[in-house]
Design a protein around this nucleic acid. Structure first.
Length: 135
DNA sequence: GCCAACGTTGGC
DNA sequence: GCCAACGTTGGC
């Protein structure tokens, strides 16, 4: 099963909102690389939920509950969305500063390409983040 | 608030 | 088809 990382500005949509809603349409992605990641997602895949702009940390794990479909918010119908549901909060959030300081995690796609809103996470990176989260 | 990164658009 | 200008994201 593949692992991912998705970014959200907590002011707009925080992990707490996902818990409240139960599931959500992950739409609004307008970047080709990010769209490729969305298309590669399978039901059951897990993704780190990262708070951008404020927080700047991985706070939780979410999972894919519906695979890519045409983004209803895209009038041109070129981009896709998926649906996500909450899994659990991390015991301790893992900050961007921690990831940049870590020899494994500083190679993460999201660290190297900070504007990418949906990125891949390798098994090694996934395990290392969980370790830093105290799990 | 500033600016770096980088994707997209449009003139030629 | 190149590349300058512009817009957006997101860290600092």
């Amino acid at each position: 099963m593949a692992h991912w990382l998705v970014k959200s500005e907590p002011v707009k949509f925080a992990y707490a909102d996902l818990e409240r809603d139960g599931r959500t349409v992950w739409d609004g992605v307008r970047n080709n690389t990010a769209a490729l990641r969305l298309k590669a997602m399978k039901v059951g895949d897990e993704a780190f939920f990262y708070h951008s702009q404020e927080g700047l940390e991985v706070v939780a794990i979410a999972k894919v509950v519906k695979e890519a479909f045409i983004d209803p918010s895209d009038p041109a119908g070129r981009f896709v969305a998926v649906e996500m549901a909450p899994v659990r909060k991390l015991a301790r959030p893992v900050t961007l500063a921690q990831m940049k300081a870590d020899p494994i995690l500083r190679e993460m796609e999201m660290v190297r390409q900070f504007r990418l809103s949906v990125s891949t996470v390798t098994d090694a990176e996934w395990g290392r983040v969980l370790e830093l989260a105290g799990e």
